[in-house]
Design a protein around this nucleic acid. Structure first.
Length: 473
DNA sequence: TTTTGAGTTGTTCGA
DNA sequence: GTCGAACAACTCAAA
């Protein structure tokens, strides 16, 4: 242990040891270190985490603290506005510098303030690119159509290789820390996190295991299976990426090195999904208020409905459309929803029920373990048609057809809507078509054990087309 | 400079 | 049953 002045590593959305340039740079100075995490719910523009994400954060911080300890470090926890907490702890410890990995949107503005405050005290702030493959603005002006955007990014130099883990950390002695349990990130009374614990392993090791599983067992065939919620067909890396337990550079190179083992079309398809994450962050960079404001202002005058009962039926998975209900209940119990189903339920809320996309975005924000500053609002805007490169207004998902196409045997529906377990495949996505005899033998009483559809698809489709017709340019 | 064609994820209708 | 057209408006690249 050294009495030298320390360097602070400020952890944020990068809760990992490997491929962490800020951590690596700090350890390379040879100085003792202070590994800091600040719980900041006060800074302007920073959204307080929703319940599911808070649970994840708690688990992830615990594993990070353990991992740091194994290397000789210690995680220091503090609460408050970053622009005062970080300079304060720098003063308190006599630090010569603070390292962090860059954030984007409103968070980047907070970081600017922190940097300015540090500079005033003669402390050096050093930031690194770690969480995006391509930083916003790196190739000129923002492109608002995905395909040209991604083509342009692919024409740049390939993303760098991941950095190694630091071998050993020297912890500065005795820095005061709050305790994680004090932060009360876990739910209690009631503890609703059982489904989350069962579905996920937060933390860096869990992220690496998920990546390995994806490459070994899922990547081959990804292009076709990714649309099937009844199969293990996606990477499920989103919450790990959200909290930076794994970096997109690590994912990129791991997938690229599987070339030869998996068809290149599957690989390209998956890389494009990483591309959407980049695209959405570029949008967030340009519009830090993307969760509140329509990217297309002509939607500002859209006459959204405000039917509270309809919103509640959607939230609770009681719409009477089995694929929608199964998806919403999956979300509630596991904190996750399959990509395709996100589109189906979002389209249902926005187009069938004519509810403001922000209502749905906020529900997802509270319930998703991967609730992301850029992806969540950008994708909601995309579905609503208010976003960049948005879905055309006439694309209204038919929840029956989508169910039949992508959950053809109803396996997914039955998993989360057990009251339909004994309904024959043929009508598992439209139980109201069952004959009275079939209903009885499946033990279903419509309007009693399972709801009637809260709205008729055909009617809703026509109504949505008419409503969208009004905001045409 | 101007023009042209294409653009993550769909559905319905009519031939 | 299958198939193409229609359902906007706008952005961007290529010609």
């Amino acid at each position: 242990m050294s009495d030298q002045a320390p360097v602070i590593v400020w952890f944020r959305d990068d809760l990992r040891i490997a491929d962490n340039p800020a951590l690596l740079a700090a350890s390379a100075t040879g100085r003792p270190m202070v590994c800091l995490f600040v719980r900041d719910e006060e800074s302007k523009g920073i959204r307080p985490l929703g319940g599911a994400a808070k649970w994840w954060l708690g688990e992830s911080l615990q594993t990070l603290a353990n991992d740091l300890q194994e290397l000789g470090g210690k995680l220091v926890l503090r609460t408050g506005k970053a622009a005062s907490v970080v300079p304060d702890i720098a003063q308190e410890t006599g630090a010569v510098g603070v390292c962090w990995n860059r954030r984007y949107g409103a968070a980047a503005q907070v970081d600017e303030k922190v940097e300015a405050a540090l500079q005033n005290s003669g402390i050096v702030a050093d930031s690194f690119q770690a969480n995006l493959l391509f930083e916003p603005g790196v190739a000129g002006k923002t492109l608002r159509v995905f395909t040209p955007f991604w083509k342009r990014m692919r024409s740049l130099d390939a993303p760098r290789k991941p950095h190694p883990r630091p071998k050993k950390l020297t912890q500065m002695r005795a820095v005061q820390s709050e305790s994680l349990s004090q932060w009360q990130l876990k739910p209690h009374k009631p503890d609703w996190a059982g489904g989350l614990r069962e579905a996920w392993t937060p933390g860096e090791a869990g992220a690496q295991a998920a990546l390995e599983h994806f490459i070994d067992d899922v990547l081959d065939g990804y292009g076709a299976n990714r649309d099937r919620p009844d199969r293990d067909g996606t990477s499920r890396l989103s919450p790990h990426l959200r909290f930076g337990e794994i970096s997109p550079f690590q994912v990129w190179h791991a997938v690229m090195s599987a070339r030869g083992d998996a068809p290149s079309s599957d690989i390209e398809k998956f890389l494009a999904e990483l591309g959407w994450r980049e695209f959405n962050y570029q949008l967030l960079h340009d519009a830090p208020d993307i969760a509140e404001r329509n990217l297309q202002p002509r939607f500002d005058g859209f006459g959204w409905d405000s039917d509270k009962a309809a919103v509640q039926a959607w939230q609770q998975g009681c719409t009477g459309y089995p694929i929608v209900d199964a998806a919403m209940r999956d979300l509630w119990s596991t904190g996750f929803m399959h990509n395709r189903l996100r589109m189906v339920v979002a389209s249902f809320l926005v187009k069938h029920l004519l509810i403001d996309w922000r209502v749905g975005e906020q529900w997802f924000w509270g319930t998703l373990v991967d609730a992301d500053f850029a992806n969540n609002p950008a994708n909601w805007q995309w579905v609503a048609g208010a976003g960049a490169d948005a879905a055309p207004y006439f694309r209204i998902f038919n929840p029956i057809l989508q169910g039949e196409k992508f959950d053809p045997h109803g396996d997914f529906v039955r998993r989360f809507v057990p009251e339909l377990a004994d309904v024959p495949d043929r009508y598992v996505h439209q139980p109201w078509k069952l004959s009275p005899v079939e209903l009885a033998s499946a033990g279903v009483k419509l309007g009693d054990t399972y709801p009637e559809p809260i709205i008729d698809h055909d009617f809703a489709r026509r109504r949505a087309l008419a409503a969208y017709d009004k905001v045409k340019g």
